[in-house]
């Protein structure tokens, strides 16, 4: 028997809690890494599957976020492959919380994440130049005054 029980009868794990919270889009997505490398060579498919039977399409990539303790934010821990959200959550538990690293896990389809473009750094992020007044250290006249 598998250590995590029969997949037909979910073991009442965290996976159940979020069931229904997210509707997983039907259909297979193209397998792509979390951070598709814009300059990378196109992934080369291995000629011929090593196994005799044809393998099912590659599983989607999920990004994993772990809340290490109550009161703290979920922080990106890494990524993994899974056929759906429930199994992504179970895999995330096994892969990223073997030592009590978390009290809560989020899994997010990697392709659902929109990121800013590192190439447009200058244009996208407002320049802090000449905007010292957004920081408390800009205001010096209050030096020596208590509780200010």
């Amino acid at each position: 028997m598998s250590p995590h029980g029969n997949p037909e009868v979910p073991a009442g794990a965290a996976a159940d809690v979020i069931r229904g919270a997210r509707q997983v889009p039907a259909g297979s997505r193209t397998p792509e890494p979390a951070d598709p490398a814009p300059t990378g060579p196109a992934p080369v498919q291995a000629p011929g599957s090593p196994a005799a039977a044809p393998e099912p399409a590659a599983w989607d990539l999920w990004e994993v976020f772990v809340r290490s303790n109550r009161g703290l934010s979920h922080v990106h821990a890494g990524s993994l492959h899974a056929p759906d959200a429930d199994m992504a959550l179970r895999n995330a538990r096994d892969l990223y919380t073997r030592r009590n690293e978390g009290v809560s896990i989020w899994v997010v389809p990697a392709e659902a994440i929109t990121t800013s473009d590192p190439g447009t750094k200058g244009a996208f992020f407002e320049s802090p130049q000449g905007k010292d007044y957004r920081h408390a250290t800009y205001y010096t006249k209050s030096e020596g005054v208590k509780h200010l």
Binding site: A37, G40, A42, V44, S49, P50, L80, H81
Partner: peptide, 15 residues
């Protein structure tokens, strides 16, 4: 996972 971010699929690496 880290290697995948460089544009190689996991299935290819496994194969």
């Amino acid at each position: 996972s880290a290697a995948e971010t460089l544009g190689q699929s996991r299935d290819t690496m496994m194969a």
